[in-house]
Design a protein around this nucleic acid. Sequence first.
RNA 1: GCCCUCGUAGCUCAGGGGAUAGAGCACCGCCCUCCGGAGGCGGUGGCGCAGGUUCGAAUCCUGCCGAGGGCACCA
Length: 577
Amino acid sequence: MSLAVRSLLADAIADAFVALGLDRPPKVALERPASPEHGDWSSNVALVTAKAIGRNPRELGGELVGHLNANLPLHTKSVELAGPGFVNFRLAPSWLHEILDTVIDAGVKNYARVVSPGARRVNIEYVSANPTGPLHAGHARWAAYGDALSRVLSRAGYTVHREFYINDRGVQMQKFAASLLARKNGTVVPEGGYHGQYIIDWAAEMPGGLDTDGALEWGYAKALRYQQDTMRRMNVEFDTFSSERVIAARGDVEATLSELERSGCTYISATPETSSDRDQSQRKGVDPDADGTTPATWLRTTSFRDPKRNKPLDDTDRVIVKGDGQYTYFMPDIAYHRDKFTRGDLLINILGADHHGYVGRMKAAMMALGHAADDLEILIGQNCVLLRDGVEVKLSKRTGDIIELAELIDEVGADAAKLTFLLQSIDTRQSVDLNALVAKTLDNPVFYVHYAHARVYGIGRKAAERGIVRADRTDVDLSLLVHERELDVLRVLADLPGVVATAANDRAPHKITTWVRELAGAFQSMYHDCPILRDDVDADLRQSRLWLVEAARIGLAIGLGLLGVSAPERMDDLPVD
RNA sequence: GCCCUCGUAGCUCAGGGGAUAGAGCACCGCCCUCCGGAGGCGGUGGCGCAGGUUCGAAUCCUGCCGAGGGCACCA
């Protein structure tokens, strides 16, 4: 596979340094140049190392090239010096035939299954909507992202546990129950209640005569079932649904609080500690009359530093037990994160940008519990803007203006919905035009990729019709594949292991989307220019092309699988022309 | 005021130290005696501004401008 070629060439360069009487370079980078004129593989090693050893980069590069040309590595046709000192390798197509062999040997199950250096047991929490209503279209981005990231990390050697947190206690639940009851009884929805149409619909469904607790339990069960059903219909999976109630009932909150207290990271005060308090290491006394506030228990979140930025993780300490003895929402959340560490050594949370302020304090809390700052990774995604007729649709359960995720899936299907949300980085705000997504589905990129995959099966069906059988690979001469379009497909396939590694490392599943679209494009071009089943195609060439098609199928299936998108064998609803 | 993310083609976005910045849509040309044209080939068109680091910056750093989101003893 490409990694094999890469390390083979890197070793050859390192050997060349030694042969020239120089120290072996600490690192030899090799990359696939953007322009084919720069060869198949390129190294900047001369540029990087020249200065340290007091040499001119072009001169050093020239010597390396000279040695490499006298001792050509496997597959290498020639080595050239270019630009400011790049060492460029021009390879024979045989390196791509080797890729083809590797892809077919490894298959969908094992090709591009890589082991990341940082791979470990990871717990990924995503979506985690409050059980007070349906999932809406705004949740879709996190569902698609969390699901795809889980798949990518898993292929990169992580052991993945997927999790959904249910906030089934607290005032939101009370408001939800009160809103249902108000609609049921025809009274006015209370201040701060939920106004969505779904409340009206659900209230009609709800049995009569329930008290607040009864309505709460009924509504909770309804919302949870509904959300879980929606996730299933989107093919988004979870291993665990964690209930705040269960965690609290187990006594985890108290246990966590006393652990924090024992750690010495808490203090009791009416106001947050100031730095001078700390310098004098004195406790601020109870100061009840300052402005009527009573003392609370604080977590010293400001005393932990972010090692990456070398800055404090938080700019003020945080209350965990209020003056009235009640926990803040933060406290049970800490207990939940503590619990998650039983199901992973690395925690990943996927949250919307509106939760950004929460990152530092939770990392600090985990450090107070003895974890490293890097053991909790909070991935903040920018929110998604939904447009209808070019106008932004505001989503709010409170005001009642929501677009249900279930409806979105009804209209466009799970695949189109997911791929749409996986087109771009979560660092960028995404605009999704619902009209375009729904009405112009033919423009949706999922169709292009699906079509490529279905076309592979189409070729298979056509071959069967014509009685053409693919021979054993050992009887097929893959070296007949020399057409640029054929080699392009193999070049893209060669990139996949690296793409998987980068996507995992950067937590960026959209890189898989970019790649799979590229493969689909290379395949379509190849299909157009390289006939396979036509009568005028040489029988041996046909056989090698059939194996190339199989490799493309494997790549498409892996890519789609990593995105959680289906890989159809035929396209059903062809337009009527 | 402070913190986070983003500013790349008319639009939606890739590219996130490397040599001539890519794709889709839109627009303009071609290509159906051919394996599914939901396709293929080509063209027009772009890194917000100013400094800095570097052999090399769309990419890293600083400032400014612009967009979005945060800064509770609410959840």
